[in-house]
Structure formats: C-alpha cells, structure tokens
C-alpha cells in the first residue's frame, strides 16, 4: 500500500513537474531574469532608486548599496551564477521534486479519504488538485505575494512559519468544507480559512522594490496561473493513477 501511494504520487508529480517547468520557461523565467537586472542595477527603474536595507537579499547584503556600484555588483553576481544550462536544468529538477512532494501529499490525502470510505478518481483528483493549489499557493500568496528576485521582505523564518501555518489551516479548512457536511464544520472551516489572514502575514513597514511594480505584478500573476494549471493536471493524474494503478 505504501508502495502504491508513493509510486502514484511520484509519477504524477514528476509528470506535472515537467509541465510546470515547460510553463515556467514560457511564462516566468524571463521575468525572473529581468527582475535580476533591476536587482543588480543593470537596469534602473526611475522610481526605484532607493537604498535597500542590509536585511535584504543576499546579493544586496553582500554589496551594500547596489545602485551605486552596478558594475561591481553585476560582475560579482555573474561570477557566482552557474551557466544558463546548469541553472535551468536545476530548475527543472527541483520543480519536478517539488511537484513530486505535492503528488505524494495529495495521494496521502486520497488514502485518508478512502480510509473513511470516500472514493477518489480522476474527477475528485482534479478538485483535490485545485484545492491543493489554493492551500499551497493561492492562500499563502494573498499574504506573501510571490517574490520577484530582489524583493526585500520580512525575516525569512517568520515568513516560513506563516507560510506553513497558512497551508495547514487552508488545507484543513477546505477539507472540513468538503467532507464535514454540517454547519459546525463549515463554520470551523471558514474560521480556519480566515485565521492566517486575520493574524496577518509578516510584512515590512516600507517598500524597497528596485523593479517596476508592473514587472512584479506580471510575475505574481504568471506564477499563480502556472501553479493553477499544474496543480489541476497533478490532481487529475494522481486521481487517475490512484483509482486505476494499472492504467498509468
């Protein structure tokens, strides 16, 4: 049984990860590279020339006021960066790994549902996938928008704790709505969905972005779009493999 769960989750996850990587290079990677040009000072947005605090991005922290010495910062960055091929190959590998982990978690959820007598096939899987997108990407993004490289944000560990708490609360909240079946579980579900946003994500008091806001907005929108498509495919595929392992 463990083997069936892991095999289905990993297979669906890697397939979805390859799709995510393809969509990443079509919709997201160019925006990341453009964001880095603003981060390193190769490009300067007319409104974004403020000083970044020392608590910011690694590269900024290392170079201090990067806007004052763009050439030095760019040269250092270029020396640190791997080749495009290596960089993109690692992105493909880690995207597949991440979606494999989502696939495994999703299938563990299928098994839990089946343990309580609920069948999951490709149709239910599709809905689970969309719910997974909401829990793992959309709800966290409403507090911590996907960050363009160079974004200066609050303390990392505090953001990670909020991210994890939001994923757990949102996932449990959706499950209570879907499978609870009475008013009490629906109210509890709504409270769990709202709680992370009532508590509030860790944010800084000021904005330090060097890149144009349009670029950050396009990046966030594309990241969420790619996430939704990939999660839907992941859920559908994982549900199909779960219901009919031999069909895969």
């Amino acid at each position: 049984m463990i083997k069936r769960m892991l095999t289905g989750g990993i297979l669906a996850g890697f397939a979805a990860g390859l799709l995510a990587a393809l969509l990443h290079f079509a919709f997201v990677q160019d925006l990341i590279l453009l964001g880095e040009q603003y981060e390193y000072g190769d490009l300067v947005h007319f409104g974004g020339a403020g000083e970044a605090p020392a608590t910011g991005h690694d590269h900024m922290a290392a170079t201090g006021d990067h806007a004052a010495a763009p050439d030095a910062a760019a040269a250092e960055a270029a020396a640190e960066e791997p080749s495009d091929f290596n960089r993109n190959a690692l992105t493909v590998i880690f995207t597949c790994l991440t979606y494999a982990s989502y696939g495994i978690l999703l299938v563990a959820g299928f098994a839990l549902a089946e343990h309580f007598g609920r069948r999951v096939g490709s149709r239910e899987g599709l809905i689970w996938g969309i719910a997974g997108f909401v829990a793992f990407q959309l709800a966290p993004a409403m507090g911590l928008a996907p960050e363009l490289p160079g974004t200066v944000a609050a303390d990392l560990s505090v953001r990670q704790v909020w991210w994890l708490g939001t994923v757990l609360a949102t996932g449990t909240g959706i499950a209570l709505f879907a499978y609870g079946g009475n008013v009490v579980t629906a109210i509890l579900g709504a409270a769990l969905l709202a709680a992370p946003h009532v508590i509030g994500a860790p944010r800084l008091d000021e904005y330090y972005g060097a890149a144009p806001p349009e670029l950050g907005a396009a990046f966030s929108a594309n990241v969420l779009g790619v996430g939704l498509v990939t999660w839907a495919v992941l859920g559908w595929l994982a549900g199909r493999l779960w219901a009919e392992p031999e069909a895969g």
């Binding site: 996907p146 990241v223 790619v226």
Partner: peptide, 16 residues
C-alpha cells in the same frame, strides 16, 4: 538554496 532558487521564486515559497 542556489540550486532551487528559480523554482522557489516561481512557486511563491519564501526564498531569501
């Protein structure tokens, strides 16, 4: 971190 950098940004994980 370096290996997973682009993916972490592109999945909305808190990265830096």
């Amino acid at each position: 971190h370096d290996a997973a950098h682009d993916m972490r940004h592109a999945t909305g994980f808190p990265c830096h």
